[in-house]
Design a protein around this nucleic acid. Structure first.
Lengths: 356, 356
DNA sequence: CTGTTAGCGCTTTCAT
DNA sequence: ATGAAAGCGCTAACAG
């Protein structure tokens, strides 16, 4: 096992120009700067925060000292004093799911240049853990929280929101300190199935999400409505419950085959399970979209690079992250929160085709 | 549940600083608890930290007060006092890349139950920004830093490590306060190409990573060595530079076709660009692995669900995150840092086959 | 314009 | 065993 390249270690020369000429290795404090510049701490603070006018000579001296000492204010001290940590908490459910990561990217961009940093914790789709993580964030005195999905009740969210403002996705909330962004899952699913119906499909299987998940329930409703509207009888045999993961999509697909269902199209409640379904199809030698059409839901970044590229319902994940962040910052700073996220939309790629 | 109303969004205006004037008495302090329990603040602190023995009756009273008031110590105050923030900083390069996310999951698990939280920032593959982010983390008084990849020089990392311990991936470092985990990219690439050669391939194209990236250079070296070892002449025409993203893999593949190269296999420097290459192949109607074999590098979580599942070199991303975290915590707490990361290994799936 | 003076909420000697 | 007091590093009145 080769892990460390130990050779060449001696080549790395450690020199510490900054620390070398410093009397004390510890990071310098505002007090040190004040002393060095021959002014009072308040003056330094004022310059740092632009709180008041300061004479130019003193300002120069302070700036010089700051630069020389490589000083940066201790944010914990600042936070303690100001009652603002300049940190927001993000609760995701799965740190390594492309679904959350895309939203996180929006959050990251939304935070850019604001001076806020974020601490990200994971609730792992568990209401208990979620609440625990939020308590942890609260103890860390985050200035606000962004909650992405989750299993906590709205009431619990509302309760926490009395301590710090919370913006959540997947919830319809709107109070003084709690705001929710909810996508119209029913509509999205309707769009997907409607697309299939328009292509002439009538036997459309559905790989659902977990039945205790609100989004999943809504998507099922959209599937049902599209069918009903087209006068197609709902066949419960065509509906298989999955859990949003690849493996479950594959399993669901196999179940469909094992029970000898007839269908020409499959709607998966999310892209990940569509990937799994795709693999099951591949294994059976069934071509997509020639033999069977497939539609997903989410439009994960990877979905334009599946083979073939996946037709799906696009969730504006990035925008959701960005707008949620923007809104939270607005609430924190007492501004007005405007902002709406774009609606779900059908992205037709190459996994669907007219039934022959 | 409150119904979400899209219309009228713009009507709702929040103007008061929510954070400033919370409805109910702000979060309770240790002082409040002390008063409530009729003891001194020090006693409460002692119970909280198990710093000293406290009589049972007082302990009960304090515990009761804590529970009743729903008290949790202010971590910023604690941190300021103790000089430990119980926070570590993580520098990734791209918050929404499956590559980093998998490592992040390891970090997350490594932190579990330690009381540490992490603030994650992104360097966006830019040395300047990376250094900026690290300065930001330092100002926030993180107790240590995990640096994932990046473009900063080792020397810069070493300099920063005088302020706080740093463990980094992709670097060969080992000082008192800096530790690096480096994978043997050359060997990994060798494994991939060797596998192809064993299957009878002799014309093997290579979609490389960016030429200024150390990992990419090493992988190219592995490709070269495997070829040389098999007595296959290196054909520069068969090497196309990519940038590790899907699109570049697709472009690279197309370049190969446009210049009419002959080859039976492709080795992509990472899974993402393999995905892109796969799509280009699909578009041309070229079958994988029947017509052309394809090997990636990384073994991202999605690679077992591509069509067909991707043969690749597995990087122990999760373990790297977990071990890096563990090591950092060890350094922080002055323990010894042991722990080695599993080696790269070839994962043969379904995109490679014997040349006919 | 600038220095002095109080703390923010917690831990930690130092007495008792 | 427990309380009083002194800060951690910074900001924000409050005087000048």
């Amino acid at each position: 096992m080769v892990t460390f390249r130990r050779k060449g270690f001696h080549n790395i020369i450690i020199k510490e120009p900054v620390l070398a000429d410093l009397p004390h290795p510890g990071p310098s404090t505002l007090m040190d700067v004040a002393r060095e510049a021959g002014v009072s701490p308040s003056t330094v603070s004022r310059i740092l925060n632009g709180t008041a006018r300061v004479s130019d000579d003193k300002r120069q001296a302070v700036l010089a000292a700051i630069a020389e000492m490589n000083f940066a204010p201790n944010q914990m001290a600042q936070g303690l004093k100001k009652g603002r940590s300049m940190t927001i908490g993000i609760v995701v459910q799965d740190i390594s799911s492309p679904f959350f990561d895309e939203t996180l990217r929006g959050v990251d961009d939304g935070l850019k240049g604001t001076g806020y940093a974020s601490v990200i914790v994971s609730g792992h789709w568990n209401a208990e853990e979620e609440a625990d993580r939020i308590r942890l964030l609260l103890a860390r005195k985050v200035d606000g929280i962004i909650l992405l999905s989750g299993r906590m009740s709205d009431q619990t969210v509302l309760n926490f929101s009395t301590q710090r403002p919370i913006v959540s996705t997947g919830r319809a909330l709107r109070t003084r300190s709690a705001l929710g962004f909810k996508m119209d899952n029913e509509h999205g699913a309707y769009l997907a199935v409607h697309h299939l119906i328009e292509l002439g499909h009538r036997r459309i299987a559905f790989i659902s999400g977990p039945s205790n998940n609100i989004d999943a329930i809504e998507r099922l409703a959209g599937y049902t409505r599209a069918l009903a509207e087209a006068g197609i009888a709902l066949d419960p045999q065509l509906i298989v419950e999955g859990n949003y993961h690849e493996a479950s999509g594959m399993l669901a697909m196999n179940r469909l085959f094992d029970t000898h269902q007839q269908f020409t199209a499959v709607f998966a409640a999310n892209d990940l399970s569509a990937y799994g379904a795709r693999l099951a199809l591949y294994r059976k030698g069934i071509r997509v979209p020639d033999d069977i059409s497939l539609v997903g839901f989410d439009d994960l970044p990877g979905s334009s690079y599946t083979t073939p590229p996946l037709t799906t319902i696009r969730q504006p994940l990035y925008d959701i992250g960005r707008i949620a962040t923007h809104s939270l910052l607005c609430i924190i700073n007492g501004g007005e929160t405007r902002g709406e996220v774009p609606p779900l939309e059908l992205i037709v790629r190459e996994t669907t085709r007219r039934v022959r």
